[in-house]
């Protein structure tokens, strides 16, 4: 619904900049190195549903409750990015993507650039059929925060920091 200026990607990045949320663009060839640079250890994750990339070996992709509490970084897939708001849509999975994106101090959502949409109605239109099939998702915008203790604090019950990884795939990789 916001005033349209620039490309979807530029607007998404600008919205994240307003939120002071870092975003790093990468491609499949540099993916592992980029993750290594951003994530701290121990890191946990849930497998990425993207054919062109997968989580590095050193990321525990089958975490347990104990891992959830010791991990400092959680890496999960985002299914949609919303340019107007700098939001990422985080689908819940039986493997625990919701928890992995929520408990560690740093959350790294991995979003394919091709999954960016301009605005909220478009995102919700995409989510409609999924919710009707029984699935759940979080529209997450920046880190968790609270102003309940007298002034704004980043990191309440959820992550203190979010670092978005924007995956640029070449046309032929995009299956």
């Amino acid at each position: 619904m916001s005033v349209d200026t620039g490309s979807t990607t530029q607007r998404f990045e600008a919205a994240l900049a307003d939120l002071e949320v870092p975003v790093t663009s990468t491609d499949p060839s540099k993916f592992e190195r980029t993750v290594e640079r951003i994530a701290g250890e121990p890191a946990i994750g849930t497998s990425l549903p993207f054919p062109s990339v997968s989580l590095p070996d050193w990321v525990d992709d089958e975490p347990s409750p104990r891992d959830l509490e010791s991990a400092t970084t959680g890496i999960t897939a985002a299914s949609i990015g919303i340019a107007d708001y700098g939001s990422v849509v985080l689908p819940a999975t039986p493997s625990g993507a919701e928890q992995v994106s929520l408990f560690p101090d740093l959350h790294v959502p991995v979003l394919r650039e091709s999954d960016l949409v301009a605005d909220m109605p478009t995102a919700i239109e995409r989510l409609g059929p999924q919710l009707r099939e029984g699935h759940s998702a979080i529209v997450a915008t920046g880190p968790s925060a609270t102003a309940d203790m007298g002034s704004l604090v980043k990191g309440a019950h959820g992550p203190k920091d979010v670092h978005v990884l924007l995956l640029e795939e070449a046309g032929e990789d995009d299956e």
Binding site: L127, A137, I138, A140, G142, S144
Partner: peptide, 9 residues
């Protein structure tokens, strides 16, 4: 927008 909009089914 707030940090989280939960859409739970």
């Amino acid at each position: 927008i707030t940090s989280y909009i939960s859409l739970l089914t």
